[in-house]
């Protein structure tokens, strides 16, 4: 496949495009930058992540902690002293890794943060390029393992959180069914994250995309079609779930701090 010609290299930002090509990568920088900064700050707080039956999704599941949601009370003795004792730090690597290696986000942040390229048909700042062909970006191929981990959130942790978000303490100290605004906040968070993870490109492959012949497997075929349907709006699911998980933490935090009131509907 030897290429017979030497092509002229374009300089950084060089383009004949007349539209606002910088707008989309700019919006990604702002959106991902704000979400990352907030998640980091919130994860380091180790406080105000629980309000009654509500548990912030950034802290779910609370494996070690002090609230009534915790699987184990207190932090283990082997926890390094220089790391803040935050339950979020114990689990956040998995949802974070899932998003960081997601095919949609990869394309978006390569453009927005690395200018590789800054936008379609716009000149790049660097000559050298290795893509995902070698280390370090070849590690992105681990995505499906983060997906497997996310299934625990979709099918176990978040359903439990949503169930508990519909339980409220009674005057006698027991628990009874109820509905607060926060119940819906956490329910929507679960639905959006499910739409995002179940519509992931790796899910699409694992559920049936690896096959060339689907005929004769009606259940698998239906699952593949369903995942493909979600996948067509993967970018929207990715952003909506990111915005909502951030909002869910803000909601629980502000209710816990007494700034917002969680209105009971039932």
């Amino acid at each position: 496949m030897a290429f017979p010609a030497v092509l002229k290299r374009r300089s950084f930002g060089e383009t004949q495009r007349q539209d606002a090509w910088w707008l989309q990568p700019g919006a990604v920088v702002v959106g991902l930058g704000l979400a990352s900064a907030y998640a980091t700050w919130a994860a380091l707080q180790a406080d105000h992540y629980v309000f009654g039956g509500y548990l912030s999704p950034l802290y779910s599941p609370e494996v070690f902690g002090l609230s009534h949601h915790a699987w184990f009370q207190g932090f283990p003795s082997w926890w390094p002293g220089f790391v803040p004792q935050s339950p979020a730090l114990f689990i956040l690597i998995l949802p974070l890794g899932f998003r960081a290696t997601c095919y949609y986000y990869r394309g978006a942040y390569y453009k927005a943060f690395w200018a590789d390229p800054p936008a379609c048909a716009v000149g790049e700042p660097r000559n050298a390029y290795r893509g995902e062909n070698s280390f370090p970006l070849i590690v992105q191929n681990i995505h499906r393992y983060f997906l497997y981990a996310m299934m625990a959130w979709i099918f176990v942790f978040f359903p439990i959180d949503v169930y508990r978000a519909f339980e409220f303490e009674t005057a006698s100290g027991g628990h009874a069914f109820g509905i607060g605004v926060g119940s819906f906040v956490l329910l929507i968070n679960w639905l959006l994250l499910s739409g995002y993870a179940l519509g992931c490109h790796s899910t699409r492959h694992v559920i049936g995309g690896f096959r060339n012949v689907m005929a004769g497997r009606p259940f698998q075929s239906a699952c593949y079609r369903c995942v493909s349907c979600l996948n067509r709006r993967h970018m929207a699911w990715a952003w909506l779930s990111l915005i909502w998980v951030t909002f869910s933490d803000i909601y629980v935090r502000l209710c816990s701090m007494g700034v917002w009131t969680d209105f009971r509907l039932v």
Partner: peptide, 15 residues
């Protein structure tokens, strides 16, 4: 064929 070089910009789909 270097499929690992593709970094999923989706520019090909857009044009």
């Amino acid at each position: 064929e270097g499929i690992g070089y593709c970094n999923i910009t989706k520019c090909c789909t857009k044009v």
